[in-house]
Amino acid sequence: MNGVHDMGGMDGFGKVEPELNEPMFHEEWESRVLAMVRAMGAAGAFNIDASRFYRETLPPQVYLSSSYYKKWFLGLEALLLDKGYISKDDVASGHSVALPKSLKHGKFSMADVERIMVRGKFGRTAPAAAKFKAGDRVRAKNIHPATHTRLPRYVRGHVGVVERDHGCHVFPDTAANDAGEHPQWLYTVVFDGRELWGPDSDPTIKVSIDAFEPYLEAI
């Protein structure tokens, strides 16, 4: 979706402000939100793509004015409500009043903690041969999916060069909607800065994205 989360190339957000000796969490509740998101994901309530999609679908003004972990909290609550793991009555009372729904991988317990500290595997067996190889010139398609996609707006319609082939990976565009993994070839595609930002832009800049094969067309 063409949401405010897709902010590559936007102006007006001001300077980057690094914080000296930044703590891992600024408030204790932030760490609880992180833990709940990781635990409920590992228990099978949602996959990583769905959790991203629910943050992206927060109203734009909420997205832009909420801190990072506030967005995580709002996305988590919306997702759990939508999938029926919690109810509006639960939220209103602050306690469980509705019956629980069964989780694909069962209750998240101490024994599961070590497992989630290892990153998930997203590589899958290729269902078909790769269409592109390193060195190929490709165009990022001018597409505007209404739901989750990992093709940022700032490259759409622009021509780049395939630099690396990462193998076949879970396709976020379908996985986010519970429509299956539909593994797709994934490539690093490099764009010249002037191709993206015009002839007057800095000629020393190159920008790459990791693009799934359905995002690309041969030229």
Partner: peptide, 28 residues
């Protein structure tokens, strides 16, 4: 709101509260 959600998730038996503590500790 965060505390309420944590109560709901533990009361429903979705997550063990101690496991949430352990996740935070692992990240820290």
């Amino acid at each position: 709101r965060v505390r309420a959600l944590e109560s709901i998730l533990t009361e429903k038996g979705y997550v063990e509260a101690a496991a949430l503590d352990a996740i935070v500790q692992a990240y820290e």
